[in-house]
Design a protein around this nucleic acid. Structure first.
Lengths: 235, 235
DNA sequence: ATATCGTCCATACACCGTGTATGGTTCTCC
DNA sequence: GGAGAACCATACACGGTGTATGGACGATAT
């Protein structure tokens, strides 16, 4: 029944009905475009509340926008979230694929990538948690998220393919599948960290574990954390 | 605002208001207890529909039960799901922790455990998908799921601790964290498989990848799939 | 046998959230 | 000075949830 519509959501995100705002004569330097107001109000609300506890009415109040205006710019609450997600992911796109530049030590580069991911999630916790949680309720958001994860997977898979060492280690295993599993493991752990679930709420633990997993699977070596808190010295 | 209530959900699941049903004089051998009817009707509906597209009204129709009766047995739709989840997990509890009995080859045992997990998810796809997806909307279900995952994590952590080989390999890494990451990676991949997301919708790929991940992280060795479809021979 | 309790049903209702519709205002640009 | 863009207030239809209310029937207790 609820199946093939919803295409509008992805569209609705970039459709700007008009370009220039106007009104509010002289008074109230309150703001620029309502559209932006809605976006940032939502972003702000998401910092303290879960997406599903948020009603359009809440956003309306926070953004000081009328109901009619809201629905003029966005087809739904979900569309707003969709745009926020795209923004967040795009913003941290370079942080996207692990081992960015060809650093000398691949594991160190890997760790840096993982850490970037952690920061991205920390800075956009509410938004990213929201879309992960909306997987079950909204077709459009589900598709959007799968799409984003696919990008990450592509990057990882390409990296794996390009490294004969790693590629060989994986034998006749499905490379894309391995890449995808790594991506999704990250997604899950970052989410749990954002949700405050121990032990992942400790960023150091999170990064260690994730880095170790990637390194073990790809390079076959366990990773001693580079900054051992329990054990001092030894830079 | 929505914070500290909801304790009732976990309670509500096991509270059987009465024990023996009665009514329906002679006609309609239709059924036994309404409670069971509700449960299995929901289970059945979940086989084709996502939980959030399900209304109590739908369940009512499917179970041929009145609204009043429903709320007599369950405080909410979520409570029904909660009970279904408990049942499902308990049913496959033995399949719960990987490497069950002390099989000779630890990796083979691991693979068997992973496969059991896959089956559990296949048999209860709708229910398990539902609870994963409800993480964002319901406090009670979130707690329930975290609790279940904790059980799995406990089992894995205990196993790790008991094996000096593995324990040593992990160095000064947080063992529970590693165990938890393995658990959650599984949760994610099983979920994606159930949702039909490639490449995990292929059970063989799923099992291979997961087994390889566990083996790589714990035993430091990549795993060649035991039943290579691409390459024949070599039992 | 009658009271009462537990199981169940039908129906109705209060409440809240969503998305749409209507009609009106003010500003800009042609 | 008229068209139209960018807004606002309000109201409403719709659908879902959870809570009555009132009543029927069978079982058990008195």
């Amino acid at each position: 029944m609820a199946s093939v519509q919803h295409v509008g959501i992805l569209r609705g995100m970039s459709s700007k009905p008009g370009a220039r705002p106007a009104r509010r004569s002289a008074a109230e330097p309150a703001s620029t475009g309502l559209r932006e107001r809605i976006l940032s109000a939502t972003r702000e609300l998401l910092r303290e509340r879960r997406f599903d506890t948020l009603s359009v009415a809440d956003i309306l109040t926070a953004a000081e926008v009328s109901r009619a205006s809201f629905y003029f710019y966005f087809p739904s609450k979900q569309a707003v979230l969709g745009e926020l997600v795209r923004d967040a992911v795009a913003q941290g796109q370079q942080a996207a694929d692990p081992w960015i530049g060809g650093s000398q030590d691949p594991v160190a580069a890997l760790r840096a990538g993982v850490r970037d991911g952690a920061r991205l999630w920390r800075d956009n916790a509410g938004i990213l948690m929201a879309i992960v949680e909306s997987q079950g309720s909204d077709e459009g958001l589900r598709a959007l998220w799968l799409e984003q994860m696919d990008l990450f997977t592509d990057a990882a898979a390409a990296r794996i393919e390009s490294d004969p060492q790693v590629r060989g280690r994986l034998g006749d295993m499905d490379v894309r599948a391995v890449a995808a599993s790594l991506t999704w493991m990250g997604e899950r752990l970052y989410y749990l960290a954002a949700a405050g679930v121990p032990p992942f709420d400790d960023e150091r633990v999170l990064v260690d574990v994730l880095t170790n997993a990637w390194a073990s699977i790809l390079y076959g070596r366990p990773v001693a954390p580079p900054n051992p808190t329990p054990r001092a010295e030894q830079v």
